[in-house]
Simulated scan of single mutants.
Amino acid sequence: MTIPMKNRLLMAALVAATALPAGAALADSYTVDPSHSFIQFKTQHLGYSWLPGQFNKFDGKLNYSADKSAADQKIVINIDTASIDTNWADRDKHLRSADFLDVEKFPTATFESTSFDGDANGGTITGDLTLHGVTKEISFPIKLIGEGKDPWGGYRVGFEGSYTLARKDFNLDQTNLGPAAENIELTLLIEAIKDQ
């Protein structure tokens, strides 16, 4: 079956598959730029307000070329869970403890894409999220922001996505924070630089 060009372009841009068929030409390799990328989250505090935060340390690689098929694309993101930052040291220490992320036992969270379903206006990306020792297939909407040359002679691509995480799905509900805090809203703002 022939994939329409606009579908191939977005599937490539959103980095869909995890394995390349034998003999396939590799898509271009990119490295996530942590200085222009953000992994943010927010949850409700007692149902009265929002409690936002982010992870300050993460890295990632993607294989991406606009003219390659979905089977040539891949993205992997690795998050240092100890880098959680909610702008309050005592709370961050508690979030790193066994009551929540248990960062000594589970120092890294990862996401690896497996497929994309959509068109040139956006779509849904699917992959495996490993967090707190649990691996679960998740799907969430994602949008290509843009791509092109930067002022320093490089080439960049950027996209954004969001996912609502249920704490119970990753055994993060051991501490009762009330019904308003059962879910965590994640936002990924990823910019990557083409490897030379």
Results as ranks from 00 to 15, higher is better:
Ala98Trp: 07
Gly60Arg: 08
Asp72Asn: 15
Tyr64His: 06
Arg96His: 02
Arg96Ser: 04
Asn56Ala: 08
Ala71Gln: 09
Ile75Met: 15
Asp85Gly: 09
Ala71Asp: 15
Thr86Gln: 09
Asn87Trp: 01
Asn56Asp: 10
Ser97His: 06
Asp80Arg: 06
Ala66Asn: 07
Ala98Asn: 13
His94Trp: 04
Asp92Ala: 14
Thr81Met: 11
Arg91Lys: 12
Ala89Ile: 06
Asn63Gly: 04
Asn63Leu: 12
Leu95Glu: 05
Ile84Pro: 00
Asn63Gln: 10
Ile84Val: 13
Phe55Asp: 09
Ala89Trp: 01
Ile77Tyr: 03
Asp67Arg: 05
Phe58Ala: 06
Ile75Gln: 08
Leu95Asn: 07
Ala66Ser: 14
Lys93Glu: 11
Ser83Pro: 02
Tyr64Gly: 00
Ile75Ala: 13
His94Ile: 02
Ala66Glu: 12
Ser83His: 05
Lys61Gly: 07
Leu62His: 03
Arg91Gln: 10
Asn63Met: 10
Lys61Arg: 09
Ser97Tyr: 03
Lys68Glu: 11
Gln54Pro: 00
Gln54Lys: 12
Asn56His: 03
Ile84Asn: 02
Leu51Asp: 10
Lys68Ile: 05
Asp67Cys: 03
Ser83Arg: 08
Lys74Phe: 11
Ser83Tyr: 03
Lys93Ala: 15
Leu51Glu: 10
Gly53Ile: 09
Thr86Pro: 13
His94Ala: 08
Arg96Asp: 06
Lys74Gly: 03
Ser97Phe: 03
Leu62Glu: 04
Ser69Val: 12
Ala89Cys: 00
Ala70Val: 09
Asn56Trp: 00
Trp88Ser: 10
Ser65Cys: 07
His94Thr: 07
Lys57Pro: 00
Lys93Gly: 12
Asp92His: 12
Arg91His: 12
Asp90Gly: 14
Ala70Tyr: 15
Ile77Met: 03
Ala70His: 10
Leu62Trp: 02
Phe58Gly: 02
Ile75His: 07
Phe58Lys: 05
Asp67Asn: 14
Tyr64Met: 11
Asp72His: 09
Thr81Trp: 05
Asp72Lys: 07
Thr86Ser: 15
Ser83Asn: 04
Ile77Asn: 00
Asn56Cys: 03
Asp92Gln: 11
Lys74Thr: 04
Ile84Tyr: 00
Asp92Asn: 14
Arg96Asn: 14
Arg91Cys: 12
Trp88Cys: 05
Asp59Ala: 04
Asn63Phe: 11
Gln54Leu: 12
Lys68Tyr: 06
Val76His: 10
Gly60His: 11
Gly60Glu: 05
Ser83Phe: 05
Ala82Val: 01
Ser83Cys: 04
His94Lys: 04
Ala82Ser: 14
Leu51Ser: 15
Asp72Arg: 06
Ala89Pro: 03
Tyr64Trp: 07
Asp72Ile: 02
Lys74His: 13
His94Gly: 06
Asp72Gln: 13
Val76Cys: 10
Val76Glu: 13
Ile77Ala: 01
Lys74Met: 04
Phe55Trp: 14
Trp88Phe: 13
Asp92Pro: 03
Ala70Phe: 11
Lys93Ser: 14
Asn63Val: 02
Ser65Tyr: 14
Thr81Asn: 07
Thr81Gln: 10
His94Pro: 04
Thr86Phe: 08
Asn87Ala: 11
Asn78Asp: 11
Ser65Arg: 08
Asn56Glu: 10
Thr81Ser: 08
Thr81Gly: 07
Trp88Gln: 13
Ser65Ile: 13
Leu62Arg: 01
Lys61Ile: 03
Gly60Cys: 06
Ala66Pro: 02
Thr86Asn: 10
Asn78Thr: 15
Lys57Trp: 01
Lys74Leu: 08
